[in-house]
Simulated assay, not measured.
Amino acid sequence: MLAIGRAYPTISRSVSCSGLRLFSSGSNNGRQIQLGGIYPPLTTPFNVDETIAFDKLASNLTQYAQIPFAGYVVQGSNGEYPYLENEEKLQIVKFVKDFIKESNKPLIAGSGCESTKATVKLTEAMAACGADAVMVVTPAYFKISMNDAAMISHYTTVADSSSVPVILYSVPANTGIDLSIDAIQILAKHPNIIGLKDSGGDVTRIGSIVQKTRGQDFKVLSGSASFLLPSYLAGSVGGVCALANVLGDVLCHMHSLYENNVIDKELQRRLIDPNNMVTRRFGVAGMKAALDLFGYYGGPNRSPMLSVSAEARQVIKKAFIDNEFVPQLR
């Protein structure tokens, strides 16, 4: 566990990690992670001028060190990944990896781009900056052309060239594309593709994926706290959940309960409305408002995304309080 008050790692304004270590195609150099447990998809804290507030990121990480997370995810949807420049993405990967290295917990970085070539390049750079695995979202701009053949080719090329394990990422609410079960079944056989984060919310789909990939070294992670317990029952091994940013200890408790064969249906129901506030209803702006409420740093979003109104903050607060999650300074 990291010590409170430790010195923040320094980082230069210009970071290029790609020269630190490059691997030959198809080699993961023996670096593996075992998926399972709760991973918070970290938000990117900004100053009022929209520069990255690394001191606030360090402050949040210091508090997260007290929670038994399985690891951390950066550059997911909650990190406002599409709004960051590549250099900023690499700065964050290096910063977080340096900060958490004493914990020996893995860092997963989102490296998905619209083209396969760009994804391969960014994956290499993120691995060089310390990412232990990459999470690759489905390319989506040319939706009509993103059929199974295109997806299988894309992910296979990325996994073949990546020096770290690859996790598939399906988030149809943002991309409009749900990676098909048939494609997942084929990709699960790749030795460097270790799992899937599924944010679609279809628990029967999760169960089907688990069943069809049995016998493979392939794990499924739930993409939301709103269906975390049902996803466990369907065969998932954990979750990358937005709500973990503010209720990480609660989600880790649910994971521990399930591992000990305790099914807490009431706790799952209590999570649904607060989770809705920071996902479907208010999105990342709502997530940052909730962080502020619970004593973390949320702060502003990067434009064109706007922060939520004062009225919305009250709605978000009420949803937590009504479900017995009382905001308090940490």
Rank of each mutant, 00 (worst) to 15 (best):
K143L: 13
Y72A: 00
C241V: 01
K89V: 01
G223K: 01
L22I: 07
S111P: 04
A290Y: 03
L90T: 10
T10M: 14
S226H: 05
I152A: 03
Y72D: 08
I272L: 12
L306F: 14
T138P: 11
V73S: 03
G76Q: 08
L84R: 02
T123L: 07
S307F: 09
V278N: 03
M305W: 11
S208C: 13
C252I: 02
S231L: 09
S145Q: 12
F54C: 07
A225I: 03
F282D: 02
S199F: 12
S163R: 04
V74D: 11
S231A: 14
A290R: 02
P300A: 09
V15W: 10
P9Y: 15
Y8D: 14
Q268V: 06
L267T: 01
A183V: 04
A70S: 06
I177G: 03
T43Y: 05
R302Y: 14
S208F: 14
F23T: 01
L179H: 04
D198C: 11
V96F: 14
N192F: 08
L293A: 07
F69R: 01
V210F: 15
F218P: 08
P230M: 06
A150I: 00
V326L: 14
G238Q: 12
D322M: 05
N323P: 10
H154C: 10
A290P: 06
E124V: 03
G200A: 06
H190R: 01
A7K: 12
L221D: 10
K318D: 15
S24D: 13
D49Q: 07
G37M: 03
D178Q: 14
E114D: 12
L228R: 04
V134C: 09
I4K: 07
A290F: 03
V15T: 04
I177S: 05
H253T: 00
A65Q: 01
A150R: 00
E324N: 15
A140R: 01
G36P: 11
A131L: 08
G215A: 05
L247I: 00
H255Q: 09
E114Y: 13
T157H: 02
S256R: 04
S199C: 14
